[in-house]
């Protein structure tokens, strides 16, 4: 079985948030749900300031606090190491969300169909799209995945359940890269199998020093950062997105 991991090259990231958008369209996530988020940071005082950027997907931790606290096993580890959310089992207690130190969980506070940015209830549009909401609804997300055949793909699935970055399980199972990685204009995001010594991620991790976020929490994240340092308490977020439903 593969051991999937993501490697993020901070030296390349321009903080453009194209990954955020690629994720949103691919996974049909509702308003304000940013499974992939990119921090824009500022440090220091004028004129000795430093500006940098840090993408934040789900860390898909190997010792995932969210998996441990899930009362019903809706949040679970797949054999390939992806931390998945079975939205058919989730009871919406949001314990995973409070347990997660990374803030990657998003709850469906509303009926997703009514939470896709615009009122898509439009006759002229329905004539073309057949009335799907959103009009760019991705049918791949409707399939069960993994040997366990559980419903883990995509966002905006049901009111009152938790969702988060899936590492694009529906793409990964087809041998494609997660949408954010596939689209990154600066090739700052990498994805692959750590068990394969020739994969990009293995090679990058061999070549460059890396860190993982909040490693001291013992969560053993599967997202590695190279080419930079973790944020410190002196790191201020700028241009933060505070989208609410």
């Amino acid at each position: 079985m593969a051991r999937y991991a993501m490697v993020i090259d901070l030296e390349r990231c321009t903080g453009c948030r194209a990954c955020v958008e690629a994720c949103k369209v691919e996974n049909n996530t509702p308003t304000a749900n940013l499974w992939m988020y990119v921090f824009r940071f500022e440090e220091g005082e004028y004129p000795n300031t430093h500006v940098w950027f840090m993408p934040r997907p789900c860390m898909h931790c190997d010792n995932a606090p969210c998996v441990k606290v899930c009362p019903v096993g809706a949040r679970y580890k797949r054999l390939d190491g992806l931390t998945a959310t079975d939205w058919e089992r989730c009871i919406g207690c949001r314990y995973c969300e409070v347990a997660c130190p990374y803030g990657v969980n998003y709850f469906n506070w509303k009926d997703p169909a009514e939470n896709y940015y615009l009122d898509w209830n439009d006759e002229d549009l329905a004539a073309v799209t057949g009335g799907t909401t959103p009009p760019y609804r991705n049918p791949d997300l409707d399939q069960p995945y993994g040997s366990e055949q559980r419903r883990v793909a995509g966002g905006g699935r049901a009111k009152g359940v938790i969702e988060k970055c899936t590492f694009c399980v529906h793409r990964v199972e087809q041998g494609l890269l997660p949408a954010c990685v596939a689209n990154c204009p600066l090739f700052a995001l990498h994805f692959g199998d750590l068990d394969d010594p020739n994969s990009t991620v293995s090679r990058l991790l061999r070549r460059k020093p890396s860190f993982r976020l909040l490693e001291e929490q013992g969560t053993q994240p599967r997202v590695y950062y190279i080419g930079g340092k973790p944020p410190t308490t002196e790191t201020r977020q700028i241009e933060e997105v505070k989208a609410r439903v």
Partner: peptide, 19 residues
Amino acid sequence: VGEAVTGMRDIGTMGGATW
């Protein structure tokens, strides 16, 4: 409507409290 009618929102980018 969903729990959007409450004051709770997601921790993190939404800047809320989920409990």
